[in-house]
Amino acid sequence: MNLLKNLALSDTGFVFNPATGDSFSVNPIGLDILKLLKNGKSENEIRKSLLDAYQTDKETVEKDLYDFFKMLEQLKLTEQ
């Protein structure tokens, strides 16, 4: 999964796509994931990072990441 390169992430959770002019809001964990993606982390690395940082379990993270990535695709925030 590659995030659009020029996507602007703000620490407030505000996300702006300069190519389309769309803006989005993410919650703090969503922002963490976007930042990890932006730094070129793989899905496995992100999964591990979330498990280290949050009180959760493998299955939940797997399900939720799948859903979140699908949303990123749907919102056209990933490189095709």
Binding site: T12, F16, S25
Partner: peptide
């Protein structure tokens, strides 16, 4: 400025 839109829509 986009920052203004960000502020009103985030905070």
């Amino acid at each position: 400025d986009l920052k203004e839109f960000e502020n009103i829509s985030t905070f």
